[in-house]
């Protein structure tokens, strides 16, 4: 394994380190960098150079995957500012949890009844909730480093976004089965 320090994902793609993301700029930057390090540029090179190009391209692909995904991007930003935050046990507001529980029960019921419309409408409200969480995260992670309070709040909102996204993906699976 290459032990060289790797640049952080935002620096790598020349993007500001904040939650709000210019997806087009990310995609263009990813493709531009990949076109320089992709193993296709090293087809006739020796084994060491080939290996390096596979590693570099893999690193770029991983960085792209993380930043492109709203949940992973949030987790990554938390990591950037607070290494210890990964795996910490956050508590979530009771209102949020009980609302989630209600929705899950409603979804289970709709699924049993074969009520597709109800599932679709639940899915739509989850999508709205995802966007809401992303808006909050965009306000918390701006260019300068967040305060301790903001970080604590961000941790909660990332967790909520994980909750909602997981649920939305489950529903999506059911709707497409």
């Amino acid at each position: 394994m290459n032990q060289n320090p790797k640049p952080d994902y935002f620096t790598l793609f020349n993007l500001p380190r904040r939650y709000a993301l210019d997806e087009t700029a990310l995609g263009e930057s990813w493709r531009a960098l990949l076109s320089r390090v992709h193993p296709d540029t090293a087809a006739l090179a020796d084994a060491a150079v080939k290996r390096q190009s596979v590693e570099d391209a893999a690193y770029l692909n991983e960085a792209y995957r993380v930043l492109k995904d709203p949940v992973r991007r949030g987790e990554y930003l938390l990591q950037c500012y607070d290494e210890a935050s990964t795996g910490s046990h956050e508590t979530l507001p009771v209102e949020f949890l009980s609302e989630q529980l209600d929705m899950r029960e409603a979804a289970e019921e709709a699924w049993q009844m074969g009520d597709r419309d109800r599932l679709e409408s639940l899915h739509a409200s989850l999508t709205a909730a995802q966007q809401q969480q992303q808006k909050v995260l965009a306000a918390l992670f701006v260019d300068e480093a967040p305060s301790m309070e903001m970080l604590a709040s961000a941790r909660q909102h990332v967790l909520m976004l994980q909750f909602i996204t997981r649920f939305a993906d489950d529903l999506d699976e059911k709707l497409n089965a």
Binding site: P39, V54, E55, A57, A58, Y59, N61, E62, Y64, R65
Partner: peptide, 8 residues
């Protein structure tokens, strides 16, 4: 359907 090359 993950982009290659990749390391996980």
């Amino acid at each position: 359907n993950a982009s290659i090359p990749l390391t996980r």
